[in-house]
Design a binder for these strands. Structure first.
Length: 852
RNA sequence: GCCCGAGUGGCGGAAUGGUAGACGCAGCGGAUUCAAAAUCCGCCGCCGCAAGGCGUGCGAGUUCGAGUCUCGCCUCGGGCACCA
């Protein structure tokens, strides 16, 4: 008798798959295609268990679809540009390129033992000149189509990383990577016109039926559509050229409650005034200093300065209001100016209270005599109000209808127009970094900013750079910047900014369809393989990466690089949960916890200890992180249990969209099960041929049930349930006393159904049972519908909705027959106590309810 | 503040409006063993000796029947946030 030995069988089958070319994706017009993609990794140097879960999910889908007869594309690549490579160079010496490619080699070496069905011939890294050269070529296309532009902008400057950050990369006023307080600087930057697509990107979310509702909502909120009124106040005592002040409001129904106007410190009027008035200049400078820092947001102190200028109410010439410069008005939303209605907006209320401005109410709660002026009154959606100072047509109550009516009324009076605004801003892509895709433009004294000629692409990063001082090494390079103007040929200077790494990941899915072509894509490959049928990754990319990709696919379509159908590149999206682990700590000398890795800790029945017996505090189950040391290394797991065990475990227990807790006990259990299945196959192999089979029918039914259930649950991305069904089926085989051929067929089907999760074990059983060819190439088994229906059903009997008994009857028995049997049932007789039931409900094949 | 989502045994989690707790972990009992490990068999929501009763965060409602649908709360989690 032999043993299940993953260390021996796993490499063996990986080699067999490779030799048979099982996973090479081929365009096959005779087959339907299926493109499954997991979000590609950043080459940090080591894979972690979260990668294992992510890629196993994709692999389950890929292997399953392949068995179902699809021509499957399942590629892998590397999101290889970015700051960590430069940080490593700065901290430890060496070169970002060497560091990155070294890490890639290492991680590829760690991924291969997982036995993933990946077409490695399509592998690329975004830092390959072959890839980023195509990206540069598209950047030039985008320039031609007006999809990218340069502008002076106040940007978020990260003083530690010495680079500009997109709004999306600023979290609570801090750089998303460095955590440093972000400053405001004015620089000339490249922008993608994503905001031109706001409406389209928003509307198209409705079509993303197979995306998680959560992600769709997050994207919709991020795009942030609002409908409102834009109108102009006429001004009094304003400088020349400022006789009108445009404002935007989403609450035109409160226009009669106006009390003041306020403009952003960055508003043109404020900028004009600061040149002539030192007090204003000082105030504006103070506002800029505070900027977006978290401290300022937390204090949330509304500060304003009266400009001495006034505006006239659009419906009353005599009604004049002061104009303030206020620190909470954003220049890049709406017009950078607002009217304040303190009675119905809490922020305006606070402001008015502070500066002693009037608080005229527009409406009161229905039934209320007078307005309550202790705080702003903002009615709830369903609340009804009574207008005390509206304009005509105010019988409309609240909410959207009131806003629409107010817009219509104002438009009718020639005051402003209805306007749709979006929160989404253009995407600033310039980064003052070395390890990124160079922006392929040239600065010529005569011609200005000129795109590089496509035949000169790729504009390749120079290798000989130094990281001994902060900032962008490209700026300091002695010769790299020098070039000829693509237009006039005169000596010129290259742009030294590189692109945001989110650009790299915005089109890699398209590149996988023709990864080595000398154009960004190839029409027939993109036509065949796009779209991605199933995309799988972390929820942390719900907004940025996915929104940028949706924009980029549209831009690529406009430039002829993608077919129309691919403007929404991901048909279905799945966001998987994280892998978590308990934390272990002891108290250090200074009272702070000292963390311990799971390897150093022994779990006991009621606690945990270190090797020397020191008791350890068991902390909460959280995401694996280096700082808390609650990390397990996939390589250790594979060495100890084998890849199939790791794959089986990360797919079991928790639903895939939720977090799963890694426990040693769980891993042990997974391995026990795989060993049991392997041993079961071994045992069936040595059954006597002539063994009579009393349970043949039962096992055959269990088999078809398993085929049906596992197929359904895999289709529905419910891998934890698929695994539960596989346990049930394995239990059924183990208990069965069916004849050898039936048992043999059952174990082979079990192997097939397990093969997406545990492909090596499945191959081994298949071969052991004499299966033909490789299981990886065998067609998915089909359930016989006739074997799924039972002749007899167990019918629960409820009395007043509580289950009290059950009967077994033929499935097709008519209701009248069932009623007779039910009324003769002991429990029913006892409950009726001689009386007749009020009602008797028979749901055929399901349940019986006796109402007394 | 605004917008979402989730609350089910000791734990992870199952349940087209129809037997709540599938499957797994942990636990308990037994077989095997000189003993253990491994393996196998069985039990396993709570109260109760039992009959029986109670059970899906809390409170109402709809229904013959509610974990599931409706309304109102509570708690936890996530996203956005000076967005006018």
């Amino acid at each position: 008798m032999s043993r299940y030995d993953p260390a021996q069988i796993e490499p063996k089958w990986q080699k067999a798959w490779e030799e048979a070319g099982c996973f090479t994706a081929r365009r096959d017009p005779a087959k339907p295609k299926y493109y499954v993609l997991e979000m590609f990794p950043y080459p940090s140097g080591r894979i972690h268990i979260g990668h294992v879960r992510n890629y196993t999910m994709g692999d389950v889908v890929a292997r399953y679809k392949s068995s179902c007869g699809f021509s499957v594309l399942h590629p892998m690549g590397w999101d290889a540009f970015g700051m960590p490579a430069e940080n490593a160079a700065m901290e430890r010496g060496g070169h970002p390129k060497d560091w990155t490619y070294g890490n890639i080699a290492q991680m590829r070496g760690q991924m291969k033992p997982l036995g993933l069905s990946i077409d490695w011939s399509r592998e690329f890294a975004t830092c390959d000149p072959e890839y980023y050269g195509q990206q540069q070529s598209m950047f030039i296309d985008f320039m031609e189509k007006g999809l990218v532009y340069r502008k002076n902008a106040v940007v978020n400057w990260d003083p530690v990383d010495m680079t500009v950050l997109a709004n999306e990369q600023v979290i609570d006023g801090k750089g998303w990577r460095s955590g440093a307080e972000v400053e405001r600087r004015e620089l000339t930057q490249w922008f993608f016109r994503i905001s031109d697509f706001s409406g389209e990107l928003l509307d198209a979310i409705d079509g993303l039926k197979d995306w998680p509702e959560k992600v769709r909502l997050m994207q919709a909120n991020w795009i942030g559509k609002s409908r409102g009124l834009q109108f102009a106040f006429s001004t009094v005592d304003a400088p020349e050229g400022f006789d009108r002040l445009e404002v935007y409001t989403t609450r035109p129904d409160t226009l009669m409650g106006a009390s003041f106007a306020a403009i952003s410190p960055d508003h043109p009027l404020a900028k004009h005034l600061e040149r002539h008035d030192p007090k204003i200049a000082e105030f504006v400078a103070e506002c800029r200093r505070i900027g977006t820092s978290e401290e300022a947001l937390e204090k949330a102190e509304k500060k304003g300065l009266d400009t001495g200028i006034h505006v006239r109410h659009p419906f009353d010439e005599a009604w004049e209001m002061p104009v303030y410069i206020a620190n909470f008005i954003l220049m890049d939303y709406g017009t950078g100016a607002i009217f304040g209605c303190p009675a119905h907006d809490q922020r305006d209320f606070d402001f008015a209270t502070k500066y002693g401005l009037p608080i005229p109410p527009v409406f009161v709660a229905e039934g209320a005599e007078e307005a309550d002026l202790s705080e702003a009154y903002v009615p709830m959606k369903s609340e009804r109000v009574r207008y005390v100072r509206g304009f005509a047509g105010d019988e409309v109550q609240t909410g959207e209808a009131a806003v629409d009516a107010a817009i219509a009324f104002c438009e009718g009076k020639g005051v402003g127009r209805g306007v749709t605004n979006y929160r989404l801003r253009d995407w600033g892509v310039s980064r003052q970094r070395y390890w990124g895709c160079p922006i392929p433009v040239v600065h010529c004294e005569a011609c200005g900013v000129v795109a590089e000629k496509k035949e000169n692409l790729p504009v390749e990063l120079p290798y000989d750079v130094s990281f001994d001082q902060p900032g962008n090494p490209l700026d300091r390079h002695p010769t790299w910047r020098d070039c000829a103007c693509p237009k006039c040929g005169a000596p010129a200077k290259r742009e030294t900014d590189t692109m945001d790494t989110f650009v790299d990941s915005s089109w890699y899915y398209a590149r996988f369809t023709a990864p080595h072509a000398n154009t960004p894509t190839v029409a027939e490959d993109a036509d065949y393989w796009m779209n991605v049928d199933q995309y799988i990754g972390g929820i942390e990319h719900a907004i940025l990466h996915l929104l940028y990709s949706r924009f980029f696919a549209r831009a690529m379509h406009i430039c002829g690089h993608l077919p129309k159908k691919a403007v929404e590149p991901f048909n279905a999206l799945f966001t998987q949960g994280m892998v978590t682990h308990e934390t272990y700590s002891t108290k250090g000398k200074d009272g702070r916890p000292v963390w311990h890795t799971p390897d150093d800790v022994t779990r006991t029945a009621d606690g945990a200890t270190l090797a020397d017996g020191t008791p350890v505090d068991i902390g909460p189950v959280i995401k694996m992180s280096k700082s808390k040391k609650n990390v397990v290394d996939p390589m250790d797991i594979i060495a100890r249990y084998g890849a199939d065990t790791a794959r089986w475990f990360v797919m079991s227990d928790s639903p895939p969209e939720r977090d799963v807790e890694w426990t040693a006990a769980g891993a042990e259990a997974a391995q026990k099960h795989l060993t049991r299945v392997w041993t079961l196959s071994d045992r069936i192999g040595s059954l006597p041929d002539g063994k009579p089979g009393t349970g043949d029918e039962d096992l055959a039914r269990a088999m078809h049930r398993a085929i049906h259930d596992v197929t359904q649950t895999i289709e529905g991305f419910a891998f934890n349930k698929a695994i539960a069904k596989l346990y049930e089926f394995a239990n059924a085989i183990q208990k069965s006393d069916a004849s050898k051929p039936v048992q043999r067929q059952a174990i082979m089907v079990l192997a097939q159904l397990m093969s997406p999760m545990t492909p090596h074990l499945a191959e081994d059983i298949w071969a052991h049972q004499g299966g033909e060819g490789l299981i990886a190439q065998a067609p998915w088994p089909k359930a016989d519908p006739a074997m799924l229906v039972d002749d007899n059903v167990t019918l629960p009997i409820q009395i007043n909705g509580k289950r009290r008994a059950e009967i077994s009857v033929p499935k097709e028995m008519p209701a009248s027959e069932v009623e007779k049997i039910v009324l003769a049932d002991e429990a029913v007789i006892r409950a009726l106590n001689g009386g007749a039931p009020k009602k008797l409900i028979v749901v055929p094949g399901r349940i019986v309810n006796v109402v007394i």
